[in-house]
Amino acid sequence: MTTTHVLGIDIGGTKIAAGLVGEDGELTAAREVPTDAHDPAAVARALDVLVDDVLAQACEHGHRVADVVGIGSAGPVDTRRGTVHPVNIPSLRGFGLVEAVAGRAGAVLGRPVRAELAQDGQCFAAAEQWRGAAAGAPAVLGVVVSTGIGAGVVLDGRVLAGKSGNAGFLSHVGVHLDGAVLEGSGARGVVEAYASGPSMVAAARRRGWRPGEAADAKRLTADAADGDPLALAVIADGTRALASAFLSAAALLDLTDVVVGGGVASAGDVVMAPLRAAYAELAVYPHLADVRISASRLPRTSGLVGAGRLGWSALAGDGALGR
Rank of each mutant, 00 (worst) to 15 (best):
residue 99 E to L: 11
residue 105 A to N: 07
residue 138 P to R: 09
residue 291 V to L: 09
residue 180 A to I: 14
residue 70 G to R: 04
residue 310 L to R: 00
residue 141 L to D: 02
residue 286 P to I: 05
residue 220 L to K: 11
residue 69 V to R: 01
residue 244 S to L: 11
residue 102 A to H: 06
residue 285 Y to F: 15
residue 258 V to Q: 05
residue 30 A to R: 15
residue 75 G to E: 04
residue 1 M to R: 12
residue 313 S to A: 13
residue 286 P to F: 10
residue 113 V to R: 08
residue 2 T to I: 14
residue 49 V to R: 13
residue 203 A to R: 04
residue 308 G to K: 01
residue 229 P to F: 03
residue 210 R to H: 14
residue 134 A to S: 04
residue 51 V to M: 08
residue 169 F to Y: 14
residue 322 G to R: 06
residue 185 S to H: 15
residue 203 A to Q: 12
residue 43 V to I: 15
residue 276 R to H: 08
residue 97 L to K: 06
residue 313 S to M: 00
residue 30 A to Q: 12
residue 90 P to T: 12
residue 51 V to A: 02
residue 20 L to E: 01
residue 295 A to F: 06
residue 132 G to V: 00
residue 50 L to W: 03
residue 73 S to K: 00
residue 132 G to Y: 01
residue 117 L to F: 05
residue 275 L to Q: 03
residue 202 A to R: 15
residue 147 T to S: 14
residue 166 N to E: 08
residue 292 R to S: 13
residue 80 R to S: 14
residue 81 R to P: 04
residue 105 A to V: 12
residue 45 R to N: 12
residue 47 L to K: 06
residue 159 V to D: 01
residue 155 L to S: 01
residue 318 D to F: 00
residue 296 S to N: 07
residue 139 A to M: 07
residue 317 G to L: 03
residue 43 V to K: 02
residue 86 P to A: 13
residue 269 D to A: 15
residue 26 E to R: 15
residue 31 R to M: 10
residue 117 L to C: 08
residue 174 G to Q: 13
residue 102 A to F: 10
residue 156 D to Y: 01
residue 110 G to T: 11
residue 275 L to K: 01
residue 143 V to D: 06
residue 173 V to S: 09
residue 164 S to M: 12
residue 123 C to P: 01
residue 310 L to V: 02
residue 217 A to I: 12
residue 83 T to K: 10
residue 111 R to V: 07
residue 309 R to A: 09
residue 52 D to Q: 11
residue 207 R to E: 13
residue 155 L to I: 13
residue 206 R to M: 11
residue 4 T to G: 03
residue 160 L to S: 05
residue 320 A to K: 03
residue 282 L to Q: 14
residue 118 A to R: 13
residue 50 L to G: 00
residue 187 A to E: 13
residue 181 V to R: 14
residue 41 A to V: 09
residue 188 R to P: 06
residue 265 A to H: 04
residue 95 F to C: 08
residue 222 A to C: 08
residue 109 L to F: 07
residue 298 L to P: 00
residue 119 Q to V: 14
residue 191 V to A: 04
residue 56 A to Y: 05
residue 81 R to V: 11
residue 73 S to R: 07
residue 199 S to D: 05
residue 8 G to N: 05
residue 61 H to I: 05
residue 314 A to K: 02
residue 43 V to P: 01
residue 162 G to A: 12
residue 183 E to I: 11
residue 16 I to Y: 06
residue 27 L to Q: 00
residue 213 E to M: 06
residue 3 T to F: 12
residue 99 E to F: 08
residue 162 G to F: 04
